[in-house]
Write a protein that binds this DNA or RNA. Structure first.
Lengths: 208, 208
DNA sequence: CCCCTTGGCTAATGGGCGTAGCTTTCTGGC
DNA sequence: GCCAGAAAGCTACGCCCATTAGCCAAGGGG
């Protein structure tokens, strides 16, 4: 009959541990039963701290998105232009590879209407703003900026998604391929600028 | 006690219907109970035709990957170079947007070791081969070819994944953004060629 | 010191997968 | 035409999970 000393935050922390322990599918396999086991508590007891499994998932997603934003932000601070863009991509991938379960949590699109997802929408928007901020340094017209943001997100997210999903054979060359992808993105974004007046020392070719 | 006239194929067909009915999450929400309901049959009866839910999912994935390969193939037949690459990307996205549930089924990576996933591995490899075939027309060295294939897959897959997940606000500009992405990919792949000797009439800029 | 909020618990419901074993339907051989 | 036996349903059951309801103990504020 001793108390376990749980709290809403503690439960979420344990949920993140469960997600981390489950690898790429850790988020999909997140279960209240597992969290309860890790807490040394009966499953229904968790409802004293969390509303539902869906709520818990949302909290985990919120943490993951926040971490990803923080990683991206701190990787790009003090850099600009192609340098910042490359660092952003690398940080994004590093986070995803280092925390596959949490990155999977990140992929949950918030319901645009659900009030419960408001915080999630904000967090997602904030993470996109990091990309926007980096791309502003390229001096694109507004219409192209949004296209560029989408292209960057698509390329990086697609790459790490495929990599995590085992979509690439030959493990050893993946770093190289990612570098090539980043080169391609940097050159592509630079090419969207009005004329060819990059305001940072953007190089187009030369990978590796 | 009349017979429902099921068969393994019929069950898989119904499963695909269930997936289609579920939108983006249709594959994740696929359940034997739903398939049984649609078949007008009790859930355990399905085991006369299918080994398990996991088996059924695999079959659905197999169909989806096959369809995607077919769509990509038929879009690129008779084309080459940048033209083929653009058509490939467009067909990929069209399939994904037209069949969100099936495209989601596509994203599950086959276990590299499981014998049960052998057919799935083959199907996945076949779909990658379509991309490889298209990119061969760019005359890249082997080492760059694999990088290019990965970049193309990452960009296109990432884009449609984000789009399907609601990651893009402002629905009206998405087509334009995809065109820009394709331009970027085409130019990026062309830039990987040894010198700048594209062997088809590759254009680099000029979107819309 | 007592009360009452709080955080545990057990019991129970409902839904999902999967197994066992029964019954009915169809089909192939005679 | 009949009759096995395989095939295709069914119900009953066990297990796991989420969630609700209602009970009980721990412990802090008056």
């Amino acid at each position: 009959m001793p108390r376990a000393g749980l709290s809403p935050d503690a439960v979420v922390r344990l949920a993140v541990e469960v997600v981390d322990a489950g690898g790429t599918t850790g988020f999909a396999d997140l279960t209240l039963a597992k969290v309860a086991a890790r807490a040394g508590v009966a499953a229904p007891s968790l409802y004293k701290h969390v509303g539902s499994l869906a709520d818990l998932r949302r909290e985990v997603t919120l943490i993951a998105v926040g971490e990803l934003t923080a990683a991206a932000t701190s990787a790009t601070v003090g850099r600009s232009g192609a340098d910042a863009l490359r660092a952003l991509g690398a940080a994004w991938r590093t986070y995803a590879l280092g925390h596959p379960g949490r990155y999977a949590a990140t992929q949950i699109g918030p319901d645009p209407d659900a009030p419960a997802d408001a915080a999630l929408r904000d967090a997602a928007a904030e993470s996109v703003q990091v990309v926007v901020a980096v791309l502003r340094g390229f001096g694109l017209p507004d219409a192209r900026l949004i296209d560029a943001v989408r292209a960057v997100r698509a390329g990086v997210h697609g790459f790490v998604t495929l990599e995590l999903g085992g979509g690439f054979r030959m493990r050893e060359d993946v770093d190289q391929s990612f570098t090539v992808l980043l080169d391609m993105i940097v050159a592509g974004v630079a090419a969207l600028a009005p004329s060819d007046t990059p305001q940072s020392d953007t190089t187009t070719g030369s990978h590796s």
